[in-house]
C-alpha cells in the first residue's frame, strides 16, 4: 500500500470537498465486526437485521426473494456511482467507473444479436453511452450515437465471432477494448495512482486469465491474443510458463509484488482444484492497495478507495446472502468473505 505514495500524493486540493464527504460516508461501510455478526446470525432475515441495527439504513430489504434483493444491491451500486460524479471535481472518475457497465451492455447486446434472441436482456442503465444508442448500433448498424472507438470494437468483435463461432473469443475481444478505452483515458488524466491501480488490476487479471485458459484448455498460441497488454508484468512471461507444471509457476514470480497472491492461489488450486482462493486473494490485494485512500485528505485515492470499498461491501453482502440462503455453514462463508476496507 505504501509503495505508491510519492510527491504528488495528497496534493490535489480540489478533492478536499470529496474527501470531507467521504470521511463521513466511510462510517457507513461495513467493518469486520458487522460482517461477523451477520455471518453468525441464524438465518437470512436475522443477518439482514444486523445491518439495520448498525444504522446502515441504506441496505433495506423489503422482500427476501433473490430478484428484489438483487435490485436493492444494484440500486446501491448505482447510487454509489452517482455519488462519485456528484462529489468529484472532474467527471473523469465517473467515466472511468462507468465504462465497465457500457462494455457489459455491449457484450450482452452482441451475444443476443449473434444468437438471435429477442427477450429482455439483463442490461445496466448506468454507462457513459445511452442504451438506445448501443441498441441501434448493435442491431441496426447505426453508429451515430456512439464514439468511433466503440464502433471499432463492436465491428472487431462481430468479425471475430463470425470467424471462430465462439462467444468466448468475442467477449475476450470486447474486454480488451474495455482496457484500451480505460488506458487511453488514463493517458489523458495522467494521475499516477490511477495508473498504478489499473496496472495492478490488469496484472492480476492476466494471472487469473492464464489459469482460466488452462482450465478451458486453450492452446498456448492463443494466449497472446487473450492476455491484456497494459500491465507491468510482461505477458510473454505468462505465455512462457503456461505449459510448465502448475507448482513451478510461483517460482517465476518470486521478485514480484504478487508473489504471495500467486503462491497461495496456485497452492489452493492444486490442492482443492478451485480458484476461489485465488480470486479472493486478488480482491484482497486490490482492496489493500486502495486502503491508502483512508489516509489521504486531498487526492482521488480517497474517492477511488471509497468507490471500490462500497463495491466490495456489496460483494460481501452478496456472499453472506447467498450463503445464508443456501444454508452454507458459518465457517464456509467466513472462508470466502473478502477483506473489509475500514
Amino acid at each position: 500500500m505504501l509503495k505508491n505514495i510519492n510527491e504528488s500524493t495528497n496534493t490535489l486540493e480540489e478533492y478536499g470537498y470529496a474527501c470531507g464527504r467521504i470521511r463521513d460516508l466511510e462510517k457507513y461501510l461495513l467493518n469486520k465486526e458487522i460482517i461477523h455478526k451477520m455471518i453468525e446470525s441464524q438465518d437470512l432475515e436475522k443477518s439482514l437485521r444486523v445491518l439495520a441495527e448498525n444504522n446502515l439504513s441504506e441496505y433495506s430489504f423489503e422482500k427476501l426473494d433473490s430478484s428484489s434483493i438483487d435490485q436493492v444491491l444494484v440500486n446501491i451500486s448505482k447510487r454509489n456511482l452517482n455519488l462519485i460524479s456528484e462529489i468529484s471535481p472532474y467527471p473523469y472518475l465517473f467515466q472511468l467507473f462507468s465504462w465497465k457497465h457500457d462494455f457489459h451492455n455491449i457484450k450482452v447486446l452482441l451475444k443476443a444479436k449473434m444468437l438471435g434472441k429477442k427477450e429482455l436482456f439483463p442490461l445496466y442503465d448506468l454507462g457513459n453511452l445511452s442504451l438506445n444508442g448501443l441498441h441501434a448500433a448493435v442491431f441496426e448498424g447505426k453508429y451515430q450515437l456512439i464514439p468511433i472507438k466503440i464502433k471499432r470494437f463492436i465491428k472487431q468483435a462481430e468479425e471475430g465471432y463470425l470467424k471462430y463461432d465462439s462467444l468466448q473469443l468475442m467477449e475476450v475481444s470486447i474486454d480488451k477494448g474495455y482496457y484500451e478505452t480505460i488506458f487511453e483515458q488514463l493517458e489523458d488524466i495522467n494521475q499516477d495512482f490511477l495508473f498504478y491501480y489499473y496496472k495492478t488490476e490488469v496484472d492480476l487479471l492476466n494471472l487469473i486469465i492464464t489459469c482460466r485458459c488452462k482450465i478451458r484448455e486453450i492452446h498456448k498460441s492463443k494466449l497472446a491474443e487473450i492476455l491484456i497488454k497494459y500491465g507491468q508484468l510482461s505477458t510473454q512471461k505468462l505465455i512462457d510458463i503456461y505449459d510448465n507444471p502448475l507448482h513451478s509457476w510461483s517460482n517465476n514470480f518470486q521478485k514480484s509484488d504478487y508473489f504471495m497472491v500467486i503462491e497461495q492461489g496456485i497452492k489452493h488450486w492444486i490442492e482443492k482444484n478451485s480458484l476461489l482462493k485465488f480470486e479472493q486473494m486478488i480482491d484482497n490485494y486490490l482492496l489493500n492497495l486502495l486502503k491508502i485512500g483512508k489516509y489521504t485528505t486531498f487526492g482521488l485515492e480517497c474517492v477511488i478507495g471509497y468507490y471500490y470499498a462500497k463495491e466490495n461491501d456489496l460483494k460481501n453482502i452478496r456472499i453472506i446472502i447467498n450463503g445464508k440462503k443456501n444454508s452454507l455453514s458459518d465457517i464456509m462463508i467466513k472462508k470466502y468473505i473478502r477483506d473489509t476496507y475500514v
Partner: peptide, 14 residues
C-alpha cells in the same frame, strides 16, 4: 479555504 472545502464536504453528510 482548504479546511473549509473539506468541512463543507463533511457537513453535506452530517
Amino acid at each position: 479555504g482548504i479546511a473549509g472545502t473539506t468541512g463543507t464536504g463533511l457537513m453535506t453528510e452530517d
